[in-house]
Amino acid sequence: SKTSNTIRVFLPNKQRTVVNVRNGMSLHDCLMKALKVRG
């Protein structure tokens, strides 16, 4: 089974995003990807 960790990230202006960290990806990469999608 694939394991994925879901991390809630609290952003300024009362924004919130959820990042799924996959195996083999660093938290930083996942964060940058999530913020790019939002931006």
Rank of each mutant, 00 (worst) to 15 (best):
37 V>G: 01
13 N>Y: 14
12 P>R: 02
18 V>G: 01
32 M>L: 12
35 L>A: 08
8 R>H: 03
23 N>Y: 11
6 T>K: 04
7 I>M: 06
30 C>Y: 02
23 N>I: 10
10 F>Y: 11
20 N>Y: 10
31 L>V: 06
4 S>T: 15
8 R>C: 03
7 I>T: 02
34 A>P: 14
34 A>G: 12
22 R>C: 06
12 P>M: 08
20 N>E: 08
30 C>G: 07
17 T>R: 08
24 G>R: 14
11 L>V: 02
27 L>V: 14
2 K>Q: 11
27 L>R: 01
14 K>W: 08
39 G>V: 06
16 R>L: 03
37 V>E: 00
4 S>V: 08
26 S>D: 04
1 S>R: 13
4 S>G: 12
23 N>K: 13
27 L>Q: 00
19 V>E: 08
2 K>R: 11
1 S>C: 15
34 A>E: 04
6 T>S: 07
23 N>D: 12
20 N>S: 09
19 V>A: 10
28 H>P: 02
38 R>L: 04
33 K>T: 02
38 R>C: 00
25 M>V: 15
29 D>A: 11
39 G>S: 13
19 V>G: 02
21 V>G: 06
20 N>I: 14
38 R>S: 03
14 K>M: 10
39 G>D: 13
34 A>S: 11
24 G>A: 15
1 S>P: 15
13 N>G: 05
5 N>D: 06
8 R>S: 03
28 H>S: 10
22 R>D: 04
31 L>M: 05
7 I>S: 01
13 N>K: 06
37 V>A: 04
39 G>C: 08
2 K>G: 11
9 V>L: 03
32 M>V: 11
36 K>T: 07
36 K>Q: 05
26 S>T: 14
33 K>M: 08
33 K>N: 00
4 S>I: 12
12 P>L: 01
35 L>M: 14
5 N>S: 15
30 C>F: 05
10 F>T: 08
8 R>L: 06
13 N>C: 10
19 V>T: 05
31 L>R: 00
38 R>H: 01
9 V>M: 00
2 K>M: 13
16 R>P: 01
17 T>F: 08
18 V>F: 04
4 S>R: 15
14 K>I: 04
3 T>P: 15
15 Q>R: 02
23 N>T: 11
28 H>C: 13
38 R>G: 02
26 S>N: 09
15 Q>H: 00
7 I>F: 07
10 F>L: 04
11 L>P: 00
25 M>E: 05
1 S>A: 08
10 F>V: 02
1 S>H: 13
36 K>R: 13
26 S>C: 11
5 N>G: 08
10 F>H: 10
16 R>S: 04
4 S>N: 11
26 S>H: 08
9 V>T: 08
5 N>T: 14
13 N>T: 05
22 R>N: 12
33 K>G: 04
24 G>V: 08
5 N>V: 09
24 G>S: 15
20 N>D: 04
17 T>P: 01
35 L>Q: 00
20 N>T: 09
14 K>Q: 09
33 K>R: 06
3 T>N: 06
21 V>I: 08
35 L>V: 03
36 K>D: 08
1 S>Q: 14
6 T>P: 03
5 N>K: 11
31 L>P: 00
33 K>Q: 03
21 V>M: 03
14 K>S: 08
22 R>S: 05
13 N>D: 07
